[in-house]
Computed example of a mutant assay.
Amino acid sequence: MSDPTTDAATEAFVAHRNLLFTVAYEMLGSAADAEDILQETWLRWVTVDLAQVRDLRAYLVRITTRQSLNRLRAMARRKETYVGSWLPEPMLTAPDVAEDVELAESVSMALMLVLETLSPTERAVFVLREAFGVDYDEIAAAVDKSPAAVRQIAHRARRHVDARRPRKTVTQNETRAALESFRRAIESGDLQGVLDVLAPDIVFMADGGGVKQAALHPVLGAEKAARYLLGGTRKRGTRLTTEPAVVNGSPALVVRLDGEIDGVMAARVENARISGLYYVRNPAKLTHVASETRLTLR
């Protein structure tokens, strides 16, 4: 005979699982770590007396936030010894993510990189408030701060992010068009074609994690980025192909060498040109590009 309390706990957890995963992913930038956080959340959730919980969703988000904060602080130490640039883990996302402008923007590679510049607490407060609309009192309970302190942190984090995110909203079609031009040029080895679609001040970042060859530092400027890209992807005897995909809610490219997945390229587009290009090659970060991951803000 089943335990009604356990059944209720399971039902609530399953109902909010996609939300909890999205919270953890936005805080951590790692799908693998977000999956671990879900396991930790579940283990704590089944010990909770549900009769004392007024809002099951809010309580689950609180547990997930606390576990994510602990993991985020541990990851900071891990990143100190990471080989080369660290980029968020890309995820193949369902079409409905791209249709939700707010959700797509919140998990975009460009914004996730900006979030990397926040402190763990700032990131948690920003994500909970800006992406999920959690009230200040609930955030305060999740991060062990007073509501007044949370308001100050939220204001500081928002100002920091706003100063670094694109000022002009770019549509999915604009991003898709820029990537299509880039795709044709990179596959044909057309240097001028690549230069035409890159912004003069582009920042190109590659993440090989010390496992695959990648630029150890960001490559700045269209000329350098174009030559690096063509030199690194046009190896003798290697056939490079790219295919459009929706990654983290935005148009992206899956890159294949001789038919095998080599990495994922995401882009930040401004004024019809690519101003940021992010190439994830680390095999450990490519496990979520084979099938769609469901995300939600609700």
Rank of each mutant, 00 (worst) to 15 (best):
V101L: 10
A94P: 00
R236I: 14
A131T: 13
G189N: 09
R159L: 15
S106V: 02
E187Y: 02
R151L: 08
A206P: 00
V264C: 14
N271C: 00
D100C: 01
T47W: 00
P120H: 04
Y278F: 15
D258W: 01
K79S: 12
E243F: 05
M75K: 05
I153R: 00
L69C: 13
R66L: 08
V264K: 04
D258C: 12
A142H: 03
K212L: 14
V170F: 09
N173W: 00
A98E: 12
T296D: 01
R159P: 03
R44A: 13
E174L: 09
R273S: 05
E174C: 04
A12R: 02
R151N: 06
G263R: 10
V161L: 06
A31V: 04
T64W: 00
T22Y: 00
E187T: 15
T93I: 05
K285C: 04
M112G: 14
R256P: 14
R167D: 13
P147K: 06
F21H: 05
F132E: 11
L111Q: 10
T93R: 03
T41D: 04
A94K: 06
R78M: 09
R239D: 14
L220W: 04
L230C: 08
W45L: 11
K235S: 11
I153M: 03
A31D: 01
L20G: 05
A141Y: 01
F21I: 09
A149E: 13
F182I: 03
M109K: 04
A141E: 14
L38E: 08
K224H: 10
I153C: 01
K285Q: 12
R78D: 10
Y136V: 14
V61Q: 11
V97T: 10
A9L: 13
V48R: 07
A199M: 00
V197E: 13
V247Y: 03
K212C: 07
M109C: 15
D135R: 03
R281C: 02
G221I: 10
N18C: 09
L72A: 15
R273L: 06
G209H: 07
L50D: 03
E35F: 02
V289I: 15
Y136M: 11
M112P: 11
F182D: 06
V264M: 13
R17I: 11
W45T: 10
E187D: 12
K285F: 05
R183P: 01
K145C: 14
R281A: 07
V247T: 09
Y278C: 07
R159Q: 15
D36K: 09
R167K: 13
R268W: 01
V203Q: 09
G84L: 07
T121L: 10
A266D: 11
V280Y: 05
L103K: 03
R239S: 13
R54M: 09
G209Y: 02
T41K: 01
R165Y: 08
T81F: 01
H155W: 03
F204T: 02
A24C: 09
G249N: 06
K145S: 13
H288Q: 10
S106G: 12
T6N: 07
L230E: 06
I186D: 02
S68L: 09
L195I: 07
A178D: 03
A15I: 01
V211G: 09
A51N: 10
A185L: 06
R158M: 02
Y279Q: 08
L43E: 15
R66E: 13
F132V: 10
K79M: 13
N282W: 07
R298C: 02
R164K: 12
G221P: 12
Y82E: 08
A272S: 06
E292L: 08
